[in-house]
Amino acid sequence: MTKTTTEVKVLVVDDEPQIVRALRINLSVHGYEVITAATGADALRAAADEHPDVVLLDLGLPDVDGIEVLAGLRGWTSVPVIVLSARTGSADKVEAFDAGADDYVTKPFGMGELLARLRAAVRRGAAVTSDSVVVTASLSIDLAAKKVIKDGDTVRLTPTEWGILEMLLRNNGKLVGRRDLLREVWGPSHESETQYLRVYMAQLRRKLEVDPSHPKHLLTEAGMGYRFQR
């Protein structure tokens, strides 16, 4: 079911104070909850902590290019992303869409048009998140509520364990590379430290698998990475 605007959380990522202020005022007036970030690093952190329903993303950020932020988001979430950018070239738009943008609005923009695009993005996001519960014979995993039930009992996961599981579930059935997991959960400086993954995957299997020594869901692809299989 589509959320009302009072339930919709929007993450605004822009380093221009005037634009952030204008967006905060206008979106708040229309009932949206607004979170802001001025850098790419803050944006990724806010997305992970706050779980926004839509992201409005500027490409010209002071620390990293917005395309990198978009790629980082797409590593673990399908949240709708509307790019807001002064870049008007077709190549810039193609690059953004290839990286996973849902829409592209050039600056300056009219608030009426942006609100219409925002409503459309919320509708698309609602269709995606309706499948946020993954169910197997013994497990029920609710991505939105961050809740795991195994054979009727709640399973408590650490934030790191949840981060790994969530990324695998967002790529349900697909191989997720070790470096991608390490970069997403621990950060870029830990990409080569695969021992972390082995330890945490063993912990997850003990908590989630019926027979941890013969896992059915948390599968290892030797030398490559991991996948979640229903």
Rank of each mutant, 00 (worst) to 15 (best):
H214T: 12
V128C: 00
F97M: 10
V210I: 15
L115A: 10
H217W: 11
V69T: 05
M201E: 02
R123K: 13
L27P: 14
E68D: 15
D92S: 14
T220Y: 11
R74H: 10
R45W: 10
S192F: 07
N172G: 10
V148L: 03
V122D: 08
L11F: 09
R21D: 08
D142T: 05
R179K: 15
A47V: 10
K216D: 14
S189Q: 11
I25R: 10
A137K: 14
R117M: 10
T5C: 10
S90G: 03
E166F: 13
A116T: 11
A47S: 09
V83K: 00
P52L: 00
L118G: 15
D153P: 00
M111G: 11
D65M: 04
Q195Y: 12
Q229G: 04
D49E: 15
K207C: 09
A91G: 07
V176K: 02
E50C: 09
R123W: 09
G100V: 10
A86P: 11
S85A: 09
K216F: 10
T136S: 12
H214F: 11
D131R: 15
Y104W: 05
L182M: 12
G163P: 03
D153E: 13
L218R: 08
L157S: 05
L70H: 02
E191P: 01
L56E: 04
E95Y: 02
K107T: 14
D14Y: 06
G31E: 00
V210C: 00
I67H: 03
V79N: 02
S189H: 07
I82S: 03
G100E: 02
K3T: 11
Y196M: 06
L44P: 06
V64R: 08
V122L: 05
W76P: 02
R119H: 15
T160W: 01
G40Y: 02
D98S: 13
V135W: 05
A120G: 14
V10H: 04
P108I: 00
H217L: 04
W162M: 01
D211S: 12
V83R: 02
L118F: 13
L182D: 05
L218V: 14
F228C: 07
G125L: 04
V34K: 01
P159Q: 09
L143C: 03
V128H: 10
A121H: 12
L118E: 11
A137L: 08
Y196A: 02
P108D: 00
S132F: 03
R205H: 12
K216L: 13
G152E: 06
L208R: 06
P62D: 03
Y226N: 05
D153Y: 08
T39I: 01
V12H: 09
L59S: 04
M1S: 14
A126I: 11
R117E: 15
A99I: 08
K216G: 15
L208A: 07
R117Q: 13
T136H: 08
E50S: 13
G225I: 01
